[in-house]
Design a protein around this nucleic acid. Sequence first.
DNA 1: ATGAAAGCGCTAACAA
DNA 2: TTGTTAGCGCTTTCAT
Lengths: 362, 362
Amino acid sequence: MKPARKAKPTIRDVAAAAGVSVGTASRAFNRAGRVSDAAIEAVQAAALRLGYAPDAIAQSMRTRTSGVVGLLVSDLANPLYARIVNAVEARLQRDGYALLLANTHNDSRHERAMIDFFRRRRVDGLILGPCESERPEMLDALLAQDLPVVALDRDFGPAGSGVHVDHFHGALQATRYLLNLGHTRIALMTPGQTLRPGRERIAGFTDAFAERGLKPEPKLIRAERSAMEFAFSEALALLSSAEPPTAFVCLGTRILAGVLQGLRHAGRSVPDDVSVISVGDTDLSQLFSPAITSLTWDFEAVGTAAAELMLKRLPPAAAGQAVEPERIVMTTQMVLRESCGPQTASRPAKAPSARARQVAKK
Amino acid sequence: MKPARKAKPTIRDVAAAAGVSVGTASRAFNRAGRVSDAAIEAVQAAALRLGYAPDAIAQSMRTRTSGVVGLLVSDLANPLYARIVNAVEARLQRDGYALLLANTHNDSRHERAMIDFFRRRRVDGLILGPCESERPEMLDALLAQDLPVVALDRDFGPAGSGVHVDHFHGALQATRYLLNLGHTRIALMTPGQTLRPGRERIAGFTDAFAERGLKPEPKLIRAERSAMEFAFSEALALLSSAEPPTAFVCLGTRILAGVLQGLRHAGRSVPDDVSVISVGDTDLSQLFSPAITSLTWDFEAVGTAAAELMLKRLPPAAAGQAVEPERIVMTTQMVLRESCGPQTASRPAKAPSARARQVAKK
DNA sequence: ATGAAAGCGCTAACAA
DNA sequence: TTGTTAGCGCTTTCAT
């Protein structure tokens, strides 16, 4: 049996049922212009009776706004990004905006394609997560077309709006902490040095050393990719080198797990052999033994702030007016736990035990 | 300085530039009907020159399809859901569909509102994640309007299509394993018994007991909410009861962390005092000491399958034809690790040590 | 194979 | 205050 599909009622149907013209019906819904209370009542009654809901596509066609914001993120499977996306969606939803979501897989060609795709769909604004390519020209092109853009942890030059995490001071603080504990052979692992977060972290890391007239060992800065498998093998390589690090700063969501696994394989214990600092206070950092000292920030706040930055330059808040670029900086904080210990002479970093070597081999 | 904003070219502009009519230009793009190669070439050249891209909104207006699929999920911040969403998006993107995403916060009123919202935006299809309310009437209403619906782990009656995880056999297997180890006081923690996953798990759990002529202790089945804070306090309450469980089956993403924390507070060790099984093989389960035995399944496959089920009933695959309902069942597998041990008489479950009591108190 | 024109559902001018 | 009408950009008959 095939149920008869009754066509969705249009505003014409409602107008007819209410005994008014389509213009009046439209005005009744939008409260625009002057409409009599009687008309409003009649129209709304008719709409209710017919189960009418305005067609967003047709509205977009006329008004040239879609009520949709596009969000481009490099990897939604990253739980930390997911929390940000979640917050963005919640805030946008509250103001009646919908969220069009796409993954760029951290590929700038792909990102470009998705931006075009979104623009064809007439998104009212674009929120861009961090990505390898940070080309200000791209932003100019977007802005020139009156498309509000908000960046997440990405530099777009002075014309760009966005919310940024203060990775510089975060890395600075974490590194100082380790330096104070006597460590000097500190490994820094962070995704992509071409991304803003990576650059900032490396800068903060280096500055902390510079404060004491030191320079970090370049070989200990690992800033290529963020996959856990990568972190694992990198950590292992680092640990079996001639002068292995005595501390790890793991500034990427999946990195901690890889490093911890590497440490386990190499038979090193935390914090006795090696100190560890992680990022983004997760279940793992809280429950691992020892609990991991973490550098973190408020992910929900990042998402909410990004959404609000966007909302501010969308109707009705921005009544067609261009809004000044604005950046919000989120600070990080360190959660001190048990994974860092002093680097003492009695713990020679150079000589992993025979047992450690054996475990590492298999 | 304000850059002159040049209006986006329309198909009229392209047609004019190519010296053809709009109809021909349209046909040239869509390869529909008969068009001369010369015309196609001229039109495409003009389009390229002008930087023309068809307006998706206007296309939707005419064709009555939007190229957008809506996805409703109860909690995107759940990392496991995020992985599913990621896979859905990737598969949809490959076929040129966009993803409109919204969070329902597991509230059925909210879900209803978002469905309406999506329908107003003329989504071509709807993918619905698990939610408290599983009302087949709702599905009927949707289907009657020719809106393809695919469910994720949610029962919609025989008319519904979807992908389902075999939580029943998963729970059965996990419980059998614990039963074989000699445990009988096994706590089951899973989100919502009104949700399909919760119901199935409870059924599998109960059946495993029934196989040996046993019945689970009802008080040890905790199926209310899934928040970690909840799991923590529930675990604590369970552990300090007169007859505490000797094993925990934690079937929710955030539950493991809460239970582990509860165990730590109560001073119990895993697996000596208490055995633990978790769900969805995470970093935490792999790296916790001892590593946690886990019940898991392929989350990416769930998302991909859902997307493909949807694609199958969307153009061009389904040329306006209704497609038979179809369900896909994903099997679970157990990853055996170190968190489960035998329940022996020498480990009395009833008497937590004085130290454990003290720790639990503070 | 191509052009002209209708019209998707709605809003916004303009008239009345 | 209300009705009428002209499009928004596109696809799709229907002639030619």
